[in-house]
Amino acid sequence: MNRDVVAYLRCPVCHETLGTTGRTLRCPRGHSFDIARQGYVDLSAGRSPHTGDTPEMVAARDAFLAKGHYEFVSAALADAAAGAGGLAVDVGAGTGQHLAAVLDGDPGLVGLALDASKPALRRAARAHDRAGAVRADAWGRLPLADHDTAVLLDVFAPRNGEEFHRVLRPDGLLLVVTPEPDHLTELVDALGLLRVDPDKEDRLAASLDRRFVLERRQSLRSTLRLDRAEVAAVVGMGPSAWHREPAAIDLATPVEVTAAVRLDRYRPR
């Protein structure tokens, strides 16, 4: 675990600072948390009600992202975060690819990947040499100090407005990526995948507007040309994977698919 990252962490039990002793993180009150051999540490304190993405979903995500299909999203995040310095936290980080791009874009940042999925964290822990990986519940109290985080990334992940506001610096930056209504529309129509919730916009506003000011809204779009394996991967890594077996996909490929997301940039009130 990167020691520069550990300095920003807090004990999930008593909220005291954490230090590194061998392969253990320990607070002054004696609460200790072992660093897994894969490099991540579990700071959920048993409070996470879910296990996150399965190994199969994580493998599909890794395979799809490795093809560079979402690099346009990573690049936009890196551009927005450049110059912030300090700690960048990716909530629901998955394999850590977006976080790694942000760190590459700003040598003054160190990174923390937060996720509930142990299979994801095993990959995220190796995503960048200036990053650490921690298991935590995005809906609970994050194991971070008050007002000490420079950048928060939230890419298709839960938005805990109260906690985001608590951990961000007064001059901090919250970057939220959400799917547009036509995101992956060709696959949604052809395969009957889950659609973007039409009430999502209202829920996003309700979760953030009281604590954050929207500074900028940016539309990001790309046309992806996917072969059969890539179609199976994008289905297998998303929410439809809980309802559909990727191996059962019957679709003529290659197919051109619209990738359409929105990047919202917020500052704390």
Rank of each mutant, 00 (worst) to 15 (best):
A150V: 00
D53N: 10
R10C: 06
G192W: 07
A59C: 02
S44H: 05
D106N: 08
V257S: 09
D182K: 06
V6A: 11
L168S: 08
D199H: 14
V5S: 06
R244Y: 13
G68L: 12
V58S: 01
L208E: 08
A116H: 03
L184E: 07
E230H: 10
T24R: 03
P170G: 09
L114F: 09
F212Q: 03
A60L: 05
G140T: 08
R269V: 14
Y266H: 11
R126S: 13
Y8C: 06
V155E: 04
H243T: 14
L9P: 07
R195N: 07
L77N: 06
N2E: 13
L224W: 15
M1N: 06
V234R: 05
N2P: 08
D34K: 03
A233P: 06
H147W: 01
A157G: 01
T258Y: 04
G132D: 09
A120T: 09
A190W: 01
M237T: 01
A229G: 14
R159N: 10
T178Q: 12
D202M: 11
T95G: 08
V151R: 08
V41C: 13
H31I: 00
D250S: 13
P55T: 07
L173A: 01
R47V: 05
R122H: 07
Y40P: 06
A252S: 14
H69D: 01
V235L: 15
A59D: 12
A150C: 02
T185C: 12
G46Y: 12
L121C: 05
V134G: 00
Q97F: 09
D106Y: 10
C27F: 04
Q97D: 11
R169L: 09
E162S: 12
F164V: 02
V41Q: 04
R135Y: 02
E163H: 12
N160E: 06
A84H: 12
A75H: 13
K118H: 09
T51Y: 00
F64N: 03
A259E: 11
C27D: 12
